[in-house]
Design a protein around this nucleic acid. Structure first.
Length: 419
RNA sequence: GUGGCCGUAGCUCAAUGGUAGAGCUCCAGGUUGUGGUCCUGGCUGUUGCGGGUUCGAGUCCCGUCGGUCACCCCA
């Protein structure tokens, strides 16, 4: 019996990796004053259809009709849920809101490395603030998340763009607002398509004098005026190294209105590890105009991150030390003399009361086996309880150093050794 | 959704169309107090599944399911 395609069983080792990731996410998000919230995994299909998410994501929905004849969908992303919740509780919170969430999302896609049908996503959103500082704050949080896991500017780049730059550009050529979305779609694809195809697409849109060359010139322009204030803020934070302005980033979701960005892994042939942007109209539209809240945020997926962590040695080392520090057990009691078992069990209990992670052999076993078991559960120390009770031998398994100490000083000894 | 490659023991893999194997893991031993590298023994397979060709199919053909890579797109 295997799980469904694109879904995962998490064995303890896998789950430890997930914990490393999610604990890091929460730790860094809280450093920025973000608070955690959650919402339902299943939503009304309508939430995603209403001009909101738009585009590709609608074709990837896990949707069905429930027993009450409601058309529902597993959430493919968190933002519509967040927007719905915030619109409903607008008056209960002072602004701005700094909210984050860690939860499962679902997309019916063909799976490959770093892409699954159920994945965990970190979502961080700053709501109720229109200023560029809010954009900077959110992008700084994204960068700090990456730095926290050991990634530097040589490992990952934030490609940064702004849809406003495109709106201004299109206005010069008299391209109508209703054609903007189609046009951004052309930009989104032009990196990957032959020039003739791009030309053909452009000619289909009503315009005056726009050519592919002009488009390329614009995209190659060294300065993007609308981005300057944001870049200055990031410079002031010392995070400019991570940023690469890139007008080809427009993103597929329909609701973005301003700055958009994607964090790209430069190693391991991976894909975007995170993406987001400003969506100042989503909450307004979702609430039919009842609530207007500007917002900016991003999502980061676990599937790509878990692969990415394996690609960068510095990140891998950092993760390894986490796993060592959180191993199943710190102390393994080796019962060398069965006559002392009662003492050993009492000792185990005392240590556990003191917060130490302790295990021991549940049945009589050869000392050699017990040492193997100590190794296998990742214990730092083996404490041997034998005929010389109440004297104990304490062995550090990594170095094989052994000291002999009386049982009453074990607790003190351990607390000074376990850092 | 489109295309390429691959499905053999828990894992990694082998087997010119002719009796399904190895290494690792796991389990039990190496008699009575010391583990990562020793020795011995043991367990596990409807060769992904279903058809077909053949005296005979893990091997060839078709379908199907699963994995993987690329496209697509994105976390």
């Amino acid at each position: 019996m295997k799980p469904l395609s694109g879904f995962r069983d998490l064995l303890p080792g896998d789950y430890a990796r997930r914990r490393y990731l999610t604990e890091g996410w929460r730790d860094v998000a809280r450093r920025y004053g973000f608070v955690e919230f959650d919402g339902p995994t299943l939503e009304s299909l309508e939430l995603y259809q209403k001009k909101n998410s738009g585009g590709e994501i609608l074709t990837q929905l896990y949707q069905f009709t429930d027993r009450g004849d409601r058309t529902v969908a597993l959430r493919p992303e968190m933002t519509p849920t967040l927007a719905r919740i915030v619109a409903a509780h607008d008056r209960e919170f002072s602004k701005p809101l700094r909210w984050f969430n860690v939860g499962s999302c679902f997309r019916y896609e063909r799976q490959q490395r770093g892409r699954l049908r159920e994945f965990l996503q970190l979502n961080c959103d700053l709501l109720g603030e229109r200023s560029v500082t809010a954009d900077a704050e959110v992008i700084a949080l994204l960068i700090d998340l990456l730095r926290h896991f050991g990634f530097g500017p040589n490992d990952v780049t934030i490609r940064l763009s702004d849809r406003l730059a495109w709106h201004d550009f299109l206005e010069q050529f008299g391209i109508k607002k209703e054609n903007t979305a189609d046009f951004l779609n052309v930009v989104d694809k032009m990196e990957r398509e032959p020039q003739e195809k791009t030309e053909e697409k452009i000619s289909l849109l009503q315009h005056s004098g726009l050519t592919v060359d002009k488009l390329r010139d614009f995209m190659a322009s060294p300065r993007i005026p609308v981005l300057e204030p944001l870049l200055e803020e990031l410079e002031a934070r010392g995070l400019r190294d991570f940023i690469k302005p890139d007008l080809s980033i427009v993103r597929g979701l329909a609701y973005y209105t301003g700055v958009v960005f994607e964090a790209f892994a430069l190693k391991g042939n991976l894909r975007a590890v995170a993406g987001g942007g400003r969506y100042d109209r989503l909450i307004h539209d979702l609430s039919n105009g009842a609530v207007t809240l500007p917002a900016v945020g991003f999502g980061m997926g676990d599937a790509v991150m878990l692969e990415f962590l394996k690609e960068v040695p510095r990140a891998t080392d950092r993760e390894a030390s986490f796993h060592q520090a959180t191993a199943a057990c710190q102390v393994y009691l080796v019962i060398a003399d069965e006559a002392q078992r009662a003492h050993a069990i009492r000792l185990a209990q005392q240590l556990r009361d003191a917060g130490v992670r302790v295990a021991f052999s549940l049945a009589p076993e050869r000392v050699g086996k017990q040492f193997s078991a100590a190794e296998n559960v990742g214990a730092t120390f083996a404490v041997m309880i034998g005929a010389e009770w109440p004297q104990l031998k304490v062995k550090r398994l990594s170095s094989r150093e052994e000291v002999s100490i009386p049982v009453e000083s074990l607790s003190t000894w351990l607390s000074s050794e376990i850092s």
